[in-house]
């Protein structure tokens, strides 16, 4: 029997290994597939949320949003994470169509592969919403609206924060060298920030010491830099450490919520972090679909609905920390 237990563990590993093909921090999961939330008071509506989620820390907050919304309005919801596998996402969408869903919300991380399935949803007369990714495609596919954040707008928000902090030269430190999303964050920053912006690659997340050293080197090369925006959670912490050793006391901004960033904001060493508020990306689609099904409302007016940027600063860090511990931020 022990042999079989080993086999099970090995199988679990291979699954995990397969799951980690994507990028970023939120791409992990041991693939639990379909959790059904069935609340008795909610009548007979069933909504499906079919995403490329991996149930990592980011997506578990989205799922929590969905669960809470479903409980609030009393409907049944099906959560289908495809763990960055477009084929599985297509199958799950088709399964939702076959189940005569009352509303389907999908994320469009791979529009080319998943697009046709999305069109089948609309053709079947089922209301379609997109969330998280798919801003540029939702309209063409016939989705009612898109619920998410744009990287450019998030960067713009950060730029205004830095304006308020009164700094003059911001280093936009990227943790990947060819990631469009990260470049857009920096472009948004440059758009609204009134001073100078230098956008540089600051080392990969898989080697934090090198990241610190790279940022320290950039700081040493240009003494006029007095603020750093780290466009991911680890690089924001690296920026903080590099700035401290270099004795620069630069103002630091970060992206996303991690315990480390929240701690640093609480102690005041990091000024703010940009929050995508992904809870809304789980919560709002359910509410919109519920209202469309029960009240024929269509939200958005053909425009996307932005869930961010929200900001966490020293003012609300403590509260957000508690909420984060509860799994809603």
């Amino acid at each position: 029997m022990r042999k079989f237990r080993w086999l099970a563990i090995v199988l679990a590993f291979t699954r995990v290994a397969a799951a980690c093909g994507g990028d970023g921090d939120d791409t992990t999961s041991t693939g639990a597939t379909q959790d059904t939330v069935d609340l008795t008071q909610g009548g007979d509506l069933t909504f499906h949320m079919v995403t490329h989620s991996d149930d990592g820390p980011f997506w578990s907050v989205v799922k929590r949003g969905m669960d809470d919304a479903c409980a609030a309005v009393g409907v049944s919801c099906v959560w289908s994470p495809s763990v960055n596998t477009p084929e599985k996402q297509v199958q799950d969408i088709d399964a939702a169509i076959a189940a005569a869903s009352d509303g389907i919300a999908i994320s469009l991380a791979s529009p080319d592969q998943v697009g046709p399935a999305a069109e089948r949803v609309v053709a079947a007369g089922i209301p379609l919403y997109t969330l998280n990714s798919g801003l540029d495609f939702y309209k063409a596919l016939g989705a009612v609206t898109h619920i998410g954040q744009t990287e450019f707008v998030a960067g713009q928000g950060a730029g205004e924060r830095f304006n308020a902090l009164g700094v003059s030269h911001v280093l936009c430190a990227r943790q990947e060298q060819s990631n469009v999303g990260l470049e857009e964050r920096c472009a948004g920053l440059a758009d609204t920030f009134s001073g100078q912006v230098t956008s540089e690659f600051g080392g990969l997340d898989n080697d934090i010491p090198a990241q610190e050293a790279a940022i320290a080197a950039i700081l040493a090369a240009d003494p006029s830099i007095d603020a750093i925006l780290g466009v991911g959670p680890p690089i924001a912490i690296s920026a903080l450490n590099a700035s401290e050793t270099a004795g620069r006391g630069a103002a630091i901004g970060g992206f996303d919520l991690t315990p480390e960033i929240l701690d640093a904001i609480e102690t005041g060493t990091i000024a703010f972090t940009v929050d995508q508020q992904q809870y809304l990306q789980g919560y709002l689609p359910i509410i919109f679909m519920f209202l469309q099904a029960t009240n024929q409302n269509t939200a958005g007016g053909g425009l996307p609905i932005l869930t961010g940027p929200g900001f966490v600063t020293s003012d609300n860090a403590a509260e957000v920390k508690d909420l984060s511990a509860q799994g809603t931020r």
Binding site: F13, T14, A17, C20, S29, P57, T258, P259
Partner: peptide
């Protein structure tokens, strides 16, 4: 490499429920 990479993620998620082990 794949086994170790997978084990890192898997055990991290299994024991501390996040990909950052601190």
């Amino acid at each position: 490499f794949f086994v170790i990479k997978g084990a890192k993620l898997g055990f991290a998620k299994l024991f501390v429920e996040t990909i950052q082990v601190g």
